[in-house]
Amino acid sequence: MAYRHKERHVTERMGWLRAAVLGANDGIVSTASLVMGVAAAHATPSAILVAGTAGLVAGAMSMAAGEYVSVHSQADSEQADLARERKELETDVESERKELAAIYAGRGLDPLLARQVAEQLMAHNALDAHTRDELGITETLKARPLQAAAASAASFAAGAALPLLVVVLAPATGLLWWIFITALVFLAVLGGIAARVGGANVRVGASRITLWGALAMALTTAVGMLFGGAG
């Protein structure tokens, strides 16, 4: 019985991790920035909450649509490459065998062994061998538009709900600071978790996402104060 050693790698999580982190990050930053800008313009608590809720819905739909279109374009390209590869295997299998053998030889195999490997893999599943080793398309990393869209929308909504919860629970006095500080905490935790899951440095991941979030919220608050004062 053949021994199979199953390992879990970071790349297996990259598809959904990228969409989830991007969505949650945008949800926190955009919604916190939005409600801070509206609050800085001296809006009422109900107006702040309505604006934030509208931002949550609009942002979630925008993230889902954008991610779906982007990833679907990748999926279309993959399907076009697969169709072309399938046709080439039907019309010129020997050239495809040489091409695959050249790939293995380029990776360090002896040319004779490379050809033997190519022949055996193509005898087993020619299209799968070329899909993986020539096109670089694998089951783990292939495009999944619906999964990416759902992950982006759900994570954006979850991230956006956090600043809105602060708006509901925090006292009106010092609301701007409550939103700002809690949003930075949320972002730091998110960045740390994303870095940990992705195998990167936790401190760097948390600092990077927090810095950009702070900048976005500061700029939006300044805009709210400017136009609020002008009104």
Rank of each mutant, 00 (worst) to 15 (best):
P111R: 14
S207I: 08
A143E: 02
F156M: 06
A118K: 06
L211I: 15
S207Q: 08
L211Q: 02
L169E: 00
R8K: 13
L175I: 13
T131I: 07
G66T: 14
W178V: 05
V21F: 12
M122T: 08
E88N: 02
L215W: 03
L113K: 14
M36F: 04
V189K: 02
I137K: 08
E119D: 10
F186K: 02
A214Q: 10
E96V: 01
G106L: 08
S70T: 15
T131L: 06
M122A: 08
V202Y: 01
M63T: 09
A148L: 05
L34D: 13
S46V: 11
W178T: 04
V69Y: 07
V197D: 00
A60D: 09
A39R: 06
A32D: 01
G37I: 13
Q147F: 06
D81P: 01
A123F: 07
L135W: 03
W212C: 07
A153P: 10
R4V: 14
V167N: 06
A65I: 15
G205F: 05
V35N: 04
L176A: 03
E119S: 10
A151Q: 09
A24W: 08
L49D: 10
A2Q: 12
V166F: 04
N125H: 12
S207E: 05
A206R: 06
A222N: 11
T131H: 07
F156Y: 14
L135N: 04
D76G: 11
K87S: 14
T182R: 02
I103V: 09
T140K: 08
W177V: 04
G159V: 03
R86K: 15
